[in-house]
Design a protein around this nucleic acid. Structure first.
Lengths: 226, 226
DNA sequence: TCAAAAGTGTTCAGGGTACACCCATGG
DNA sequence: CCATGGGTGTACCCTGAACACTTTTGA
């Protein structure tokens, strides 16, 4: 029975995380400055090898936790990347995941310690490996899922204004949206509930703060057609 | 530099192909009866290990070619499957691909020789490994891409009738479509060209045969909203 | 002559899209 | 008092959906 396997090669298997967060009204991703070979000195996605005692999904969650200190973060597989020479050092097959989190919740100490930095998606530096391709694919998958699933609330803080929500959709969809039409649509979703609170930081007048109630949404889904 | 890698384990990496084809007016997939361990005696997807001199994508294309004799078949990655115990024999990370082909073009000698058999998707036997999960995911991805890309023509013969095309969409979308609305939509696509020919096998009256011209379609895309 | 599939237009309603002005407040 | 962002309703058009009968021909 072992013969079935033994004539074949084994490879390192890694995971790479495309971690999205909102920062200064822009969509950012977490990049690290590599302090070791291969690709030392270049910017790259946060990654790590899959170990014996963990599934590939678990490895991705671990890498994310080690970098941000966060658990229970929304993650989704983007796909496997398996070009022969994608890693200049060794043959490595990598599985990419994207993660969505509230940038303020990430442990900034840990980020600093690991040389990680939030970078706007439209100002990415040159990246090592096949990471540009991974990011491209991740944005594509993210955009698609954004339309049909309530992913926005993974990126926003607990309480948010409708302007923040709209801006986020405009960022991800890469197109401007009509304010009145947007709010009309939102009003139909009972899962987006107004709290009594007002945010005074964004304007003189102040804006109503909403929060997302996943319990309500459960029955009312397919999300946006914007 | 090697230290960076060497402390980590290596795994077998395999590919599994979900091969879709039309057979007797139904959507079928190719299954093989396993003549060896692990999972001997069970039905399974056609798979194989990734070798040192090929990318993961290439491995999938090779496995497909070895089974069907076909090259240049439409294939698309479904994702990586990395549960620890997904293969009872060894730790194997597998990357699933779906393929679309015209069932009549597959080399039936090869299929017989390898114990492969077309099986309707709604009559699948019990399958080994995590193959049911892979098939589920593959159908989902396929359905999604079917709406926005001209994948139907990968499954149909070179010349096809509009009834065949509609039946295929109904199969994949799992819902009945209105004949007149369907044909109205088709008429808008200049890439679906009538040939002068008539198919007399499906009806007494005979039906016009069409063919797909990818050159024309290039500029006119996003496909169906059905 | 009849069974069986091919082929063909119109009507209606709902939803998406476009659009402009008043409100509240801090400085 | 004014600059800044917050908040609100209506009208139109287009597209998706529903719907039934005639044509052709082999058996």
């Amino acid at each position: 029975m072992t013969d079935y396997y033994s004539s074949h090669p084994r490879f390192f298997v890694s995971v790479d995380c495309i971690i999205f967060g909102l920062k200064d009204g822009k969509l950012n991703i977490l990049l690290t400055h590599r302090a070791f070979e291969p690709e030392m000195g270049k910017w790259s996605l946060m990654g790590g090898f899959v170990e014996r005692d963990e599934s590939v999904d678990d490895a991705a969650a671990r890498v994310l936790r080690q970098l941000t200190g966060l658990d229970n973060v929304y993650m989704h597989q983007v796909g496997a990347f398996g070009r022969i020479d994608r890693d200049p050092g060794e043959r490595v097959v990598s599985v990419a995941y994207f993660a969505l989190l509230n940038a303020n919740e990430a442990d900034s100490e840990l980020l600093r310690a690991r040389g990680a930095q939030w970078t706007p998606v439209d100002e990415l530096p040159e990246l090592g490996f096949d990471h540009p391709e991974m990011i491209e694919k991740a944005r594509e998958v993210m955009r698609r899922k954004f339309v049909t699933e309530p992913l926005a609330f993974e990126l926003l803080p607990e309480l948010f204004t409708l302007t923040q929500l709209q801006t986020l959709y405009e960022l991800v969809m890469a197109q401007p949206l009509d304010k009145r039409n947007f709010r009309k649509r939102i009003a139909e979703f009972s899962c987006i509930e107004p709290t009594g609170q007002i945010d005074k930081t964004g304007s003189r007048r102040g804006a109503r703060l909403y929060h997302y109630n996943p319990a309500v949404s459960a029955d009312t889904f397919s999300f946006f057609k914007i």
